[in-house]
């Protein structure tokens, strides 16, 4: 059955670039904006989505029991108390990886898509079986990367795999952006990364210490209505995903004198 549920894979190739943080914040933001949202932790080996959402003590059943049919879908779903539009489908035991197949992933995603407007799949790092399972149920994807050579290279591998799996659209989120370093050309610029990866930019997230504070507490920035720069970035990404037109700001192109000088220096002479 074809539903209108948007099933979005959040992936990066490289580990530690911010997949799980994006999944948690985006999930909360979409829920706040009125969409029924499920976040599915597809990282069975190293699950963490429960921890970032502060739901680690409320897990009773997981995706494993749902797939084994020893519990119903609703029993495994953990509803967020402060944001009831958001539910977590926890990852099962790492031993599941011995038998988990892409078909299993498709089954659980199609169950979720009957209940929710958005299903966000938090993909494991790497391009091996974990990725192949996670991609099986997805319709579209968000690739998240940092403006660093290793992260961009790995993102490129993943984009190739998404293309060959027929996943469309694929959009880019650039994470951990440091505007000052970009302005002094000591960090890959936003358009460098979008040009190299040839993906439309869904949004960028500036480097922000509050992200660490919020993960310490298990309260995503978007949940607590933080005024911090990263919180604004995440909620803009959610709104763009819903189809709102919110202009992208290039952090390296803000109107300082220093910036005007930098643009002069970049004038093509020949």
């Amino acid at each position: 059955m074809e539903s209108n549920t948007r099933i979005i894979l959040i992936c990066s190739g490289k580990g530690g670039v911010g997949k799980t943080t994006l999944t948690a914040n985006l999930g909360i933001a979409l829920a706040q904006q009125g969409s029924k949202t499920a976040v599915l932790d597809a990282d069975f080996g190293l699950r963490n989505l429960d921890l970032l959402l502060g739901l680690e003590n409320r897990i009773i059943y997981t995706a494993q029991e749902v797939l084994e049919e020893s519990c119903r879908l609703e029993q495994a779903l953990v509803k967020h108390k402060q944001e009831p539009n958001l539910s977590l489908m926890p990852a099962g035991n790492p031993r599941m990886l011995d038998w988990l197949k892409p078909d299993d992933m498709q089954r659980i995603v199609s169950m979720l898509s009957e209940e929710f407007d958005y299903v966000l799949i938090d993909c494991p790092a790497g391009v091996e079986d974990g990725f192949k399972n996670a991609v099986a149920g997805a319709k579209e994807a968000i690739v998240i990367t940092n403006p660093e050579v290793s992260a961009v290279r790995d993102a490129d591998r993943v984009i190739g795999l998404l293309n060959s799996n027929g996943i469309k659209p694929v959009q880019l989120v650039l994470n951990r952006v440091r505007p000052k370093m970009m302005a002094s050309q000591e960090m890959l610029a936003v358009e460098d990364v979008t040009d190299i990866l040839a993906l439309p930019l869904l949004g960028l997230v500036v480097e922000d210490e509050q992200v660490i504070v919020s993960t310490n507490r298990g309260e995503p920035l978007t949940l607590i209505g933080s005024k911090s720069p990263a919180a604004k970035c995440y909620s803009n990404i959610a709104r763009r995903l819903q189809g709102e037109e919110i202009p992208l700001i290039d952090p390296s192109k803000e109107g300082s004198i220093r910036e005007k000088f930098r643009r002069l220096m970049q004038t093509k002479i020949f």
């Binding site: 660093e148 050579v149 961009v152 290279r153 050309q185 000591e186 960090m187 890959l188 460098d192 190299i196």
Partner: peptide, 9 residues
């Protein structure tokens, strides 16, 4: 270094 990164990538 951004230019170097771009070229190497």
């Amino acid at each position: 270094s951004a230019k170097t990164a771009r070229e190497r990538l």
